[in-house]
Design a protein around this nucleic acid. Structure first.
Lengths: 338, 338
DNA sequence: CTGAAAGCGCTTACAG
DNA sequence: CTGAAAGCGCTTACAG
């Protein structure tokens, strides 16, 4: 393998560089004979076109930017794992692999300060990337929204009202219906006194909470909500304080990490799960199984999110996609005892 | 922000494009006056050079390729998290952030089949990337070694004997001394009957095992090794079967995931940790703390690995770096009772 | 110190 | 169907 250009391929094949280019780009108007002859030389020498030259000459770049926020807006604790969550890695992995089938590669950027957004425009303006996928950003960032309206950008879990007549591309998790399904499931099992330990002011949390409220209201049950900040230790404390007094028969934790704290506390309080009290999580963290914590939970497939993002990037027809959360029935929820 | 080129900057500043280029690239031979004048226009219009043009014209690309293997060589189980481990995300995060300070960005590739390595050369040959970092690959892949000898590539945890006179760039974890330190620590606590649950045939495992053996030998203790395949469930079974019969006073698990299985089994066997039996892990997984598992363990800082990789990529002087594992004292190890 | 010109390796109207 | 030529937006010897 060495450096070889269209010029040399052209000479070897006795055609012009134009024709070589046509073969490379699979244009219609070149006879099968010529095509074969040129392709043979290309294969023989293992020629691949120079990426920078073809992009400069006007071809679309085959790079997609993945922009992940690592901005600690909500927490200040040591529990903040931010960017290092397995979630992000799975997302990258899904996207990168899918991009392969579109002959694209991924440029990964990690944004630690919202101000950096201003310097990102050149990636799109100068066509360094053909498109972008943004994930993990706080809400109501006008710079982000502006960028997304101008270029080929997909926003993941960035709930902007999409009125349909703009070209914003959005991929969202359906946390709302997820919260509803989780709560309804508990109600169907006969539970009426259900505590919801919600997360914080992030939209995912607000929506899960809304789903909970909708379901409770539907069945004329009184909602009880306490905020656990998506933290294991806070959920633990809440459980310790709340449960002995109010005796709920089920707890719906806003995420699995809090469910872990809930379970820890319940065990210390000598409650059996699910016989004495049912626990519902959200997220389907795969690490819970390592600990024999068979938590019934809600799962939004990251694969779905990644796949929908890539599709939206390349396909014109849609510009919005919502990924439903599915109930994962395990053994932390049971029928309420009479 | 709109499309603007050197040509227009040149006109606006009343100089030639050559001079504009000299200012952009911070060349010496341009008087401060001219420099200021040109820079002002550049700032005013928010001009940034076209990346493809400057690379095509001979400038080094400012992209570094990160190539992560997602090749399931050892396992076939559902426990295989492969690429999705938090380890990889932390590595990417460290590298990307460090790259920023060198004005470089990261192109992330995930290799699912070793054959793909053959098609990777064009990244380097065509200078799409200025260098590469490879992690997670199996050993003795000749294609990888060949590539690494030809281009600016850093291999992470890819133990090739580096005889010093070639230009292979290697960053390794010191699993050997890590295994030794862990074992020595147990011995210093008075333990003599120490079981080592090793991983598999990966080098990290072999080296941790070697460190264990060295320490045991040094103190004339008999080594006992069983292979747990780095899996939680297997370590669990081993503990269940082995401990009641052979009554070790300490178990050194080859990684934290196995230590979790060990602890689960010990609890079921009604052993107290660390009063009855001490448990030592390896890796310092941050998730263990969520479960009140205060495992004493060994930690190789991923930050070190990432930082050393980036340094090796950009600096000429060194071509080898080894990252030591540090003892993280927590509460799963105690003095042996007399 | 500075500009005109060549060149990097492609693609694509244009003309035939 | 195919080639000559212009152009993408830079950088860099070269000459002055």
């Amino acid at each position: 393998m060495f450096k070889i250009t269209t010029k040399q391929i052209a000479e070897l094949a006795n055609v012009s560089r134009s024709t070589v280019s046509r073969v490379i780009n699979n244009y219609e108007n070149v006879p099968i004979e010529t095509k074969k002859k040129v392709q043979k030389i290309i294969d023989e020498y293992g020629y691949t076109p120079n990426y920078f030259a073809r992009t400069l000459a006007g071809k679309n770049p085959n790079i997609i930017g993945i922009f992940l926020a690592d901005i600690n807006t909500t927490f200040s604790s040591n529990d903040w794992i931010g960017i290092n969550s397995p979630y992000n890695m799975e997302l990258i992995s899904v996207i990168v692999n899918l991009l392969k089938s579109y002959n694209h590669v991924a440029l990964v950027n990690i944004i630690t300060d919202i101000k950096e957004l201003k310097n990102l425009e050149h990636y799109f303006l100068k066509r360094i990337v053909a498109g972008g996928i943004f994930a993990g950003f706080p809400y109501n960032i006008s710079e982000l929204e502006e960028l997304a309206r101008k270029y080929n950008i997909v926003l993941i879990d960035q709930m902007i009202s999409n009125d349909g007549n703009d070209n914003l591309k959005l991929v969202n998790s359906d946390n709302n219906s997820g919260g509803y399904i989780a709560t309804k499931y508990l109600i169907d099992k006969g539970h009426t006194n259900i505590l919801h330990i919600a997360g914080d002011n992030r939209l995912s949390s607000i929506q899960r909470e809304r789903g909970y409220k909708t379901a409770m209201k539907e069945f004329n049950l009184e909602p009880n909500i306490i905020y656990g900040m998506y933290r294991e230790d806070i959920a633990y404390k809440i459980t310790k304080n709340y449960v002995p007094i109010h005796k709920p028969s089920a707890i719906f934790a806003g995420n699995d990490i809090m469910a872990i704290g809930v379970i820890k506390a319940l065990k210390e309080l000598m409650f059996r799960i699910p016989e004495d009290i049912s626990v519902m999580g959200f997220d389907n963290l795969n690490l819970t199984k390592w600990f024999n914590l068979d938590i019934t939970t809600m799962s939004v497939s990251i694969k779905d999110i990644g796949e929908n993002s890539v599709k939206l990037l390349f396909e014109e027809k849609d510009n919005y996609s919502i990924c439903r959360a599915n109930l994962i029935e395990r053994s932390s929820v049971a029928e309420k005892m009479k």
